[in-house]
């Protein structure tokens, strides 16, 4: 591997790593829930790129499909649910032992 290639790949790595960290910090420090979730999805995509970069395409595949995709979809679903008005249980918070 020539010097130029090494430099470029180092540049790429650093760029990727900084991006990942930045997004991760952003996702956790964000107060707006939806922003956090989008950032999480974006994080998953970048992480998949990192897997590709690390030569683990199978992992990238899994990460993109379920790490970012399925998880992201589930989170979006949950966020949507959390916007609805809750319908609380009756105040009784005992366990179910009270026989019907």
């Amino acid at each position: 591997m020539d010097a130029g290639g090494a430099a470029v790949s180092l540049l790429f790595d650093i760029l990727l790593i900084v991006t990942l960290l930045w997004i991760a910090v952003g996702a956790l420090s964000e107060t707006k829930l939806f922003k956090s979730v989008v950032m999480f999805i974006v994080f998953g995509l970048f992480l998949a790129i990192a897997w590709v970069r690390l030569g683990a395409p199978d992992v990238a595949l899994a990460e993109a499909a379920i790490g970012a995709g399925v998880t992201g979809a589930l989170m979006l679903d949950a966020v949507g649910h959390l916007r609805k008005r809750p319908t609380p249980y009756p105040t009784d918070q005992r366990e179910e032992e009270a026989d019907a």
Binding site: G55, A64, G69, V70, V79
Partner: peptide
């Protein structure tokens, strides 16, 4: 990198955008 498998990952990315968009629209959009 010369890794053929990575192209499959690309394939999945393509689908992913659609999946999240669907989830977003159907579940999270307000």
């Amino acid at each position: 990198i010369g890794s053929a498998g990575a192209r499959d990952a690309g394939l999945v990315f393509a689908l992913l955008g659609a999946v999240t968009a669907v989830a977003f629209v159907k579940r999270a959009w307000r």
